[in-house]
């Protein structure tokens, strides 16, 4: 298909580019500047070359946080995407139930991260928390503050509770956009429920699911507030993800140079993984 290329249209994105410049590019340039220097405060900097990068790349602390971060992101993606699709498939498409379900699904998304963390911190306490007390009453040893496994389960459940709604809403938007004609054709052909899902609903949801997948990956890979409020990165370093480690370095230890070097590596990882996901998930569309 021949397209008409009008380069003047690019000027329309100048305001957006200006905003990105101020909010993202200038801070990123500052981080790059910090990553090759050392400072002891007073806005005085000393050239340090690439030493901070070498230090970060050689530290077990960085690699440990990175592995934990990947494990966390893939765990929540494996749960949230199928769960979100499942709930969206079972939501009503007509009637008063639609508004009720949509509002119900949107509620967790409206709660700030630190509040979600506080809710779960209280909810999972075995002395005063409803969930923690119930688990302890069943005779199951549970302590998110002492047992790494319990801390992980708590953080994963918290993220699933907070963010599955996003996947639900996106998947639901994809589902309601499917014309009835597709379902009528499927009924005429005697298609099974699984076939309708596999050959009509899933392909039609593909684009929104790509967005959900990317948003949830990037967001979970940058997770900070919720686990920090609940576990503080512990017990030990079991829930210390990259962002928590980064803040500890930058603000706790005031090691701006290593923190900046770590930020850049962190940024490059997110950029690469997101690009690979996006390319793989959209490649079928382009070749079709």
């Amino acid at each position: 298909m021949n397209k008409t290329w009008n380069n003047k249209a690019w000027f329309m994105i100048l305001p957006a580019m200006l905003m990105v410049m101020i909010s993202a590019v200038i801070p990123l340039m500052t981080v790059v500047n910090y990553s090759v220097q050392d400072t002891f405060g007073n806005n005085e900097f000393f050239w340090n070359g690439t030493e901070w990068f070498r230090e970060v790349l050689e530290s077990d602390r960085f690699w440990g946080a990175l592995v934990r971060n990947f494990a966390f992101s893939f765990t929540i993606l494996l749960i949230e995407i199928p769960l979100g699709v499942f709930i969206a498939l079972h939501m009503p498409r007509k009637g008063i139930g639609v508004s009720f379900c949509l509002v119900l699904m949107a509620l967790p998304l409206l709660i700030p991260w630190n509040v979600v963390g506080t809710i779960f911190q209280l909810l999972c306490r075995t002395d005063i928390g409803l969930v923690g007390y119930a688990i302890a009453s069943l005779g199951i040893p549970y302590s998110y503050a002492a047992d790494p496994k319990d801390a992980w389960i708590t953080v994963v459940v918290m993220d699933v509770w907070h963010w599955s709604s996003l996947v639900v809403l996106l998947a639901y938007a994809g589902l309601v956009s499917i014309p009835d004609a597709y379902y009528q054709a499927a009924r005429i052909d005697g298609a099974s429920r699984w076939s309708v899902f596999r050959y009509i609903q899933l392909p039609k949801m593909k684009r929104v699911l790509i967005i959900a997948f990317l948003l949830r990956f990037m967001d979970s890979f940058m997770i900070y507030t919720e686990p920090f409020v609940v576990t503080g990165g512990g017990p030990g370093t079991s829930t210390t993800f990259l962002s928590i480690d980064l803040v500890k370095r930058a603000i706790g230890q005031f090691d701006l140079g290593p923190a900046a070097a770590m930020s850049i590596i962190y940024f490059l990882i997110i950029l690469l993984v997101s690009w690979v996901f996006y390319t793989v998930m959209t490649s079928n569309d382009e070749t079709a």
């Binding site: 500052t30 910090y34 090759v36 806005n43 900097f45």
Partner: peptide, 14 residues
């Protein structure tokens, strides 16, 4: 822009 801690190599890079 001194708060951005510019250096010649990073300026050249950008």
């Amino acid at each position: 822009f001194s708060w951005m801690a510019w250096t010649l190599p990073t300026a050249l890079f950008f």
